[in-house]
Design a binder for these strands. Sequence first.
DNA 1: GGACAGACTGCAAACGTTTTCATGGTTGCA
DNA 2: TGCAACCATGAAAACGTTTGCAGTCTGTCC
Lengths: 335, 335
Amino acid sequence: MPSSRPSLVQIAERVGVSPATVSRAFNRPELLSDATRERILATARQLGFRPSKVGSSLRSGSTRTLGLLLPTMSNPVFAACFEGAEERALKAGYSVMLATTGYDSRRERAAAHSLLDHRVEGMILTVADPARSATLAELTASGLPFVLAYNESDRHPFVSVDNLAAAGDMVEHLAASGHRRLAMISGPLDASDRASKRLDGVLDRAARLDLPAPTHVSMPRHTAADRDRLRSLLSSPRPPTALFCSNDLLAASVIAELATLGLRVPDDLSVCGFDGMAFGALMVPSLASVHQPSSEIGSQACHELLNALGGGSSRSVRLPHRLSGGGTVARLPVD
Amino acid sequence: MPSSRPSLVQIAERVGVSPATVSRAFNRPELLSDATRERILATARQLGFRPSKVGSSLRSGSTRTLGLLLPTMSNPVFAACFEGAEERALKAGYSVMLATTGYDSRRERAAAHSLLDHRVEGMILTVADPARSATLAELTASGLPFVLAYNESDRHPFVSVDNLAAAGDMVEHLAASGHRRLAMISGPLDASDRASKRLDGVLDRAARLDLPAPTHVSMPRHTAADRDRLRSLLSSPRPPTALFCSNDLLAASVIAELATLGLRVPDDLSVCGFDGMAFGALMVPSLASVHQPSSEIGSQACHELLNALGGGSSRSVRLPHRLSGGGTVARLPVD
DNA sequence: GGACAGACTGCAAACGTTTTCATGGTTGCA
DNA sequence: TGCAACCATGAAAACGTTTGCAGTCTGTCC
């Protein structure tokens, strides 16, 4: 029953060797004679001793810890990203420290500071908009290596999909299914540059395909106003036949909302999302979406970060997207 | 451009005071004269200095960090738990270190060791079965304060719902809706004591209500065998009219599976789950489930842990559950 | 005028490691 | 036998903080 955790020194005394030797037993075991090594490891095990990362971080100047700063774990997209990054980091012998921002820039800044204080050696993060992020500016100034996830930027390394093209591809698919009048539904644009890029992609591709310009509806918070906005969109003279939601969570809630209005998807109206979250495939009908490989985004971002830590540099990477699901989009008769 | 992060001492030299004074500028600012404090904070800001938690942890002997050890972030239940715990921890001035186990006991042990090495001051964790968890045994031996989340145990503090009663209540609801032939679908029981408890709850309550004993089907992995098992269950002479799945994710995938078999929920068959994940409410029809307050489980577990760290003790808490959703359960005609 | 309180700051040790350099012992080889 | 090379280990300094103790000033009160 070791009431207080023993230290290297206590093990050293107990075994009758110097602290240096105990340290080596854990870090460079090949340097020791079999006898001493065994003796040390045995007593260590017996007393429940494991070397403190606090001590070693201080002395070695490296914490072997990475920071992960993501909006929320409630969105399975970021949860998957975390898991991808965590796995990659562990393989490289790094620990991960996760903090969430709740899409709030104050929390974002505070969390970043906390990670910095913990002396993480690098950071993977998703911000609202790289061009206007105070956190990102501070981070750049601090000189800490970091990689953006999901964001796209021409000033910072990032890992994402090509949001513009991806959204366009979904428009193409909708058009091929006979849809001409589209609407884009998104959350507040200033909370996500991805949503903006996707909106641009929708508008661009619609224009290219000679579709009427899609309406854009922003559903800021989950309020009664949202429901009204949706209802008025649908009761307009020439209502859209397909709603493109800027992410899957939103798409799911729009579908639920439509159900309360007595509208069935895809019979009365088509709906699609963006993210390709695993859950969408389980919905009935399966959610049409633009799949982005979230777990790979996380692991790839981690990979790039590790490159930077290894003295190399981080490239920006756009991973391939693909359309997934599809049950919520109807094939319209040509007329 | 501070190429290498400055330390307390460098700030002290720059300002012309002792390191002790700089330290106090951050920790006990009220002890300093306004002049010195300002001078110190100014240069600190200018050089981008923030005190290192590594140094302070070492000296003070406290990291003010909590460990969180959960099966996976892909299950929104645990994601919500994390967020609840994180929020509570931050409020108390603690950081959180999250690690996932993937339901794998080897990873679980390794992750626990890692957290221990980081000198977290306490731990919140969910294990497969508290009675047989090697990790839990080690943790107990180490003397580190911890609180179980979701697990129930009579030997360790925990925060959960009353799984037995909760599952029973759902059976009661099913019976009240006219269902008599039930089946319980779960993952591998040895991966989750919750599933076992819920199965017991189902059997107990069914017996109490004079229902025929529910069948139990275990769908270990997501294989073709699962589909067969499901199919053979449904083609038995007196097939169940309702499937109780041991968690929501499973329920969703069962519903999707049924759809591929041409069966509609709830028209042809009723399905319900357990967890009350936010997502279930968005499904159409909404997923009938036993809601457990995951975010509160996280925050409450954190609360209990903080109590222990404050010199008090951690109580075990069973938070209230409630039935949620309900669209996937049909009301059967009495015959 | 002297004692005293109070406000502010400095000194130095300590926390648990890692790592460079040095040391003593052993072996190999001529 | 002598010298080099090598192996296993130790001594000590350093990493960035915190904090008890002590010191130096002020100003106050009798």
